[in-house]
């Protein structure tokens, strides 16, 4: 099994297109950081627009590494899942397209083993991409902008978190984001077991993410009842670690406003991942492999 995993990882990381995701992420993050470094006042103005009638805050203090990382992650909401789908959606269908799937299935490893190894390889790629995002978005932002208290502008609330209370939240948020991205990977992976070309699972996953994200963010009451069932709603759960409790307006260090809801979102995402993987296994076991 380990040998199989090594081979699958070798295949993933040997392909030049694997690195497209890393290059794209690097370009987006660096461009955002340069733009915010050069002229972040405008963006801070927009962030503070809900309260600039009553308060003043120096933009240079608001725009620190922690806040910049939060802004970047907010803007990468759709991009990273698309890049994950690019690889995960190719795992089975890519082999079928190249005509190597039948050869793979004829090896001593069972179909379930083969599928699990491929899924594990896709998961490792997803985690590697996330670590890269974390290093660039958080690490480079801290180097460029330094650290200070973190500002979280919300729809109806404005949270400020103490400098010493931020880092663990990012670690928790990245751990949560990995669960969300694995859900996306498992969806793309599942779709790739149904077809013999890579375009359908990749485009299909991207379409699902875009439509679900619109439904999650759209403020039409008609869709309120659907929202809790969309995995994209729960993918935003990483932000829950930055929503703090307060007592008479004072932030409580180490607190999370609604931890049970965040954990529930994590469980829902895990459930979806297992469901997609289960469907993939169920289908792949019965699949008539012709190519």
């Amino acid at each position: 099994m380990l040998q199989l995993l090594r081979i699958e990882l070798y295949k993933i990381f040997k392909r030049p297109r694997t690195y497209i995701a890393f290059i794209v992420i690097t370009a987006i993050i660096l461009l955002l950081q340069i733009a915010l470094k050069a002229d972040g006042k405008e963006y801070v103005g927009m962030m503070m627009s809900g309260m600039d009638d009553s308060f003043f805050a120096p933009p240079t203090e608001v725009l620190n590494g922690y806040t910049v990382c939060f802004i970047i992650l907010n803007l990468l909401l759709i991009h990273v899942p698309i890049l994950v789908a690019l690889i995960a959606g190719d795992m089975i269908s890519g082999e079928a397209n190249m005509g190597t799937l039948r050869l793979l299935a004829s090896r001593p490893a069972s179909r379930i083993e083969l599928l699990l190894v491929k899924f594990l390889a896709a998961t490792i790629y997803t985690l590697a991409l996330l670590v890269w995002v974390a290093l660039l978005a958080l690490g480079v932002s801290i180097l460029l902008f330094g650290t200070n208290q973190m500002v979280i502008p919300r729809e109806f609330e404005f949270n400020i978190i103490d400098t010493g209370d931020v880092f663990w939240r990012y670690m928790a948020a990245f751990a949560f984001a990995s669960v969300g991205l694995i859900t996306v990977a498992s969806l793309a992976f599942m779709l790739s077991t149904f077809v013999d070309n890579s375009i359908v699972p990749v485009v299909g996953t991207v379409c699902v993410i875009i439509i679900f994200t619109i439904l999650t963010q759209i403020q039409i009451p008609f869709y309120d009842s659907v929202e809790p069932y969309l995995f994209t709603t729960h993918m935003l759960g990483w932000k829950g670690f930055f929503y703090v409790k307060g007592e008479e307006g004072i932030t409580i260090d180490g607190s999370v406003e609604n931890l049970p809801a965040v954990l529930k979102s994590g469980a829902v995402l895990l459930g979806y991942s297992l469901l997609f993987l289960g469907i993939a296994i169920w289908h792949f076991r019965r699949k008539n492999i012709l190519s």
Partner: peptide, 12 residues
């Protein structure tokens, strides 16, 4: 109040 489209709030 900020627009939800700007904040992308997590709805718990």
């Amino acid at each position: 109040k900020l627009p939800k489209g700007v904040t992308f709030d997590y709805d718990d």
